[in-house]
Design a protein around this nucleic acid. Structure first.
Lengths: 260, 260
DNA sequence: ACGCATACGCTCGATTTTGTTCGTTTTTGG
DNA sequence: CCAAAAACGAACAAAATCGAGCGTATGCGT
């Protein structure tokens, strides 16, 4: 088999990652759909599912599987997130722009988690209100991690509320890396949940520079909760599929745009 | 080696660098693709991958390799902990004694993590300084989780320091569930790390009741850092292999002993 | 120059993985 | 409740991959 071109040739473990990712996002998968999506026979998918079931990671059903371990639904498995490749590049690009010794504030979200992964090995201080970001850096010898504390917001693993905001206010950060669910010329930065938006806003206020990271699917999208205006953003890091006109307009407004 | 080539002549270290780079970028590599890309035989790639695997830098698979996930070293997989069965029973027993609506403070440690797992589905408020405990409850619809914040202490996933202690002091908990590395009649409660001991002590001070959970291997053991005296403990929950004389002495001192 | 160590490619039998076929079980839809 | 359709599991065959052994080349020190 010729592997290595694009995403056609997967080894078993990659399929498992993808299956778990699909499961984390949708909660259920079907044998037929996975077989087609991954370009392998249904027998192979059944064997994969059986193996994952033996490991207790999925709950097998007729025609597919359900997620078994509730923790699998958490955004901890970075390889399994949507646009994982793009986000990885974004993370690497963002981390490369961080100077040693700087204090970096990180909001939640899987894109920011990729930034955190790329920050491992760099001598930095990371302040975050997201447990998945803290977890990414927990095994780093170099990075120091400060968690804000706060009330845990279920699936997103973000800490919000009075405790989180107060801790953020006690600290000044060189760079705030903000993950958003929508970035729009008209509506600015938005996310899905009000409490997270509020916490992010506090982080932005404490930062010398505000960097926004988001894959192209977030561009020109507006979600319910308003975080802040584009005027506070000093840099936007996205992938190469982001529409050029949008990026040009950002540049015209003085924002440094990076395409990874 | 034929050095006269183009860029195809790599020495081992260069290949290793390139493999790790590719792995960091894509998350997975295949033997065949690497062999073609680097212009060497597949046998050489296998040797490279085996060597990198011995160094713990990659995770070997059939047909290629995945980037070694450093998160696997974290105490997140409860089933893989030592004395998992005993700890699970301890967790269930402890959780059964918690009343709905109570506020529970949880320290770190895998035994306490099992308590947290058993608390999922109960309507309680959990205050904790340990990320693994917060994660166990993140998907719970019933339990509310408050994380103290603080400086992340590497592998143990505990938050310590000024922020953690201040948040604890702001709250009163009905029950503090403390995990210890040693419990001794003479030396009281001990753990391995001073900072964690200090944080646990603050939690104990804020609790109406202090429960200690530990499997039998911790009994009559003393570890470097002192947490507090047995006199503050109101209940000790352990497994059935704990030595009876020790438990009798605890009972004599007015501690409620539960063997799960 | 010689010997030695290291790195590499090649071959070949063993192992793992995958696809296919076929009889059986489960689900679905009257 | 019954029959068609879908899904399953087991068995087998083909392909890919692996590991080990062996020979060769290159570099290095004596």
């Amino acid at each position: 088999m010729k592997t290595g071109d694009w995403g056609g040739g997967f080894v078993k473990e990659q399929r498992h990652e993808l299956i778990l990712g699909e499961l984390a996002r949708r909660g259920a998968v079907s044998v037929a759909a996975l077989a087609q999506r991954l370009g392998v026979s249904e027998a192979t998918i059944r064997r994969d599912l059986d193996e994952l079931a033996r490991l207790g990671k999925v709950h097998r059903t007729h025609g597919g599987a359900l997620s078994a371990d509730p923790r699998e639904e958490l955004p901890l498995n970075l390889k399994a997130t949507s646009y994982a490749a793009e986000k990885r590049r974004i993370g690497l690009a963002a981390a490369a722009l961080i100077q040693p010794g700087q204090v970096v504030g990180c909001s939640g979200g899987t894109t920011v988690a990729h930034v955190a992964t790329a920050l491992r090995g760099k001598r930095v201080v990371v302040v975050t209100n997201a447990l998945n970001i803290a977890l990414e850096l927990a095994t780093s010898e170099e990075a120091e991690v400060i968690v804000t504390g706060g009330t845990l917001r279920g699936r997103s693993l973000e800490l919000v509320g009075h405790v989180a905001e107060r801790t953020f206010r006690e600290l000044y950060v060189d760079v705030a890396v903000i993950g958003v669910d929508g970035i729009s010329l008209e509506q600015g930065l938005t996310t899905y949940h009000l409490s997270e938006a509020q916490t992010n806003r506090v982080l932005m206020e404490q930062a010398r520079q505000v960097w926004v990271v988001a894959d192209h699917s977030k561009v020109e999208k507006v979600t319910p909760a308003y975080i802040g205006p584009l005027s506070r953003v000093s840099r936007f890091i996205t992938d190469t599929d982001a529409p050029a006109p949008f990026l040009d307009e950002l540049r015209r407004r003085g924002i440094d745009v990076v395409c990874a």
